[in-house]
Amino acid sequence: MTEFVPASVTWAEPGDASAVADHIARVVSAPGDKRIAFTGGSTPIKVLALLKDRPLDWSSVTIALTDDRCVPDDHPASNFGKIHSALGTSGARFERLEEGAQVAPFDLVWLGMGEDGHVASLFPEMTAHVRPGPAVIATTPIPLPSEAPHDRLTLNEKALKATREIILVVTGASKRELLQSAIHGDDRYPVTHFLRGFGPPVTIYWSE
């Protein structure tokens, strides 16, 4: 794995949803079995809508989530429910998050980022279980966000870095400014740990 290689950061051009869709399509179309970790939120659903008419063989892909809220699949806050609704009939295999589970390496990890610099469910302030090695851990953000006041399951930093590459998909001027601060070493933000130091290459897809 690339875990002990100095991290490199590239800004994609263009950085819009169509460019992200092209990147996902390239990974899915590569020969052999693939493992992809999907971020939550609305962006993956928009990207998957752009891919629905492409002749992609999802049967060679195992899909995991970078994180999820501890809610039933049919709850509006369920990341698994959204991704499964979009790809459940595609032939892809799905790997659920289970607290304490060890995690196999990925071909691609797709991250988003919050306004506070959190990635997956690794927040600037949180309670969390510590697990050795690449694993699924339980976390609770502090404070609980009002729009999603739920405990979480998330891949830990080692699991998120156990991949050939990371794509980081963000929108908005304020997040671009935060990323620039993180790249220059502002360690208040969890995202900084993926943009500096050691880890797989990161491609940033940014759009307004």
Rank of each mutant, 00 (worst) to 15 (best):
A77E: 11
P76L: 08
P76W: 11
A49E: 15
R96P: 12
V103I: 15
T89Y: 09
L87C: 12
V71R: 13
I63N: 01
S60K: 14
P44H: 04
K34V: 07
F38V: 09
I83S: 04
C70D: 12
S60I: 03
K52G: 04
I24C: 05
T62P: 00
A104S: 08
K82L: 14
L51Q: 04
A86Q: 08
R93L: 06
P44D: 05
A64G: 10
K34H: 07
G81D: 15
Q102M: 11
T66V: 10
I36D: 02
S78D: 07
D33L: 13
W58D: 00
L65P: 02
V47Y: 02
I63E: 01
A86S: 14
G40N: 03
L50W: 06
I24N: 08
G91F: 03
L87S: 10
V28K: 09
I36N: 04
A64P: 01
R35G: 03
G41P: 07
A104N: 02
S42L: 11
L56P: 08
D74E: 14
A49V: 05
A101G: 00
P44F: 03
G81C: 10
H84S: 02
E98V: 15
T39K: 07
E95T: 04
K46M: 15
G41N: 10
A104E: 06
V27N: 06
V61Y: 03
T62G: 00
P31G: 13
P44Y: 03
K82R: 14
S90T: 05
G100Y: 02
G100K: 09
D57S: 06
L48N: 07
R26Q: 13
P76E: 08
S59M: 01
L51F: 02
G91C: 02
L48S: 07
G41Y: 02
V71N: 12
G91A: 04
V28M: 09
L97C: 08
V103H: 08
D53G: 06
G32T: 06
A30H: 02
R93V: 01
G81I: 11
Q102E: 14
I83Y: 01
V28A: 10
D74S: 09
H84G: 05
P72R: 11
T62H: 03
P31S: 13
K52A: 12
L51Y: 04
R93S: 10
R35N: 01
K82H: 13
V27A: 03
A37C: 02
D33S: 14
P72K: 12
D53V: 13
F80M: 13
L48I: 14
G91H: 04
G88R: 14
S60Q: 13
L56F: 05
I83D: 11
V47N: 07
T89I: 10
A104F: 07
H75C: 06
L50E: 14
A101E: 10
E99S: 11
A25S: 15
V47K: 02
V71L: 04
L87N: 08
S42T: 15
D74G: 10
T89E: 15
S85A: 15
Q102T: 13
G100W: 02
Q102P: 03
A30R: 08
V103Q: 09
Q102V: 12
T43D: 05
P72N: 14
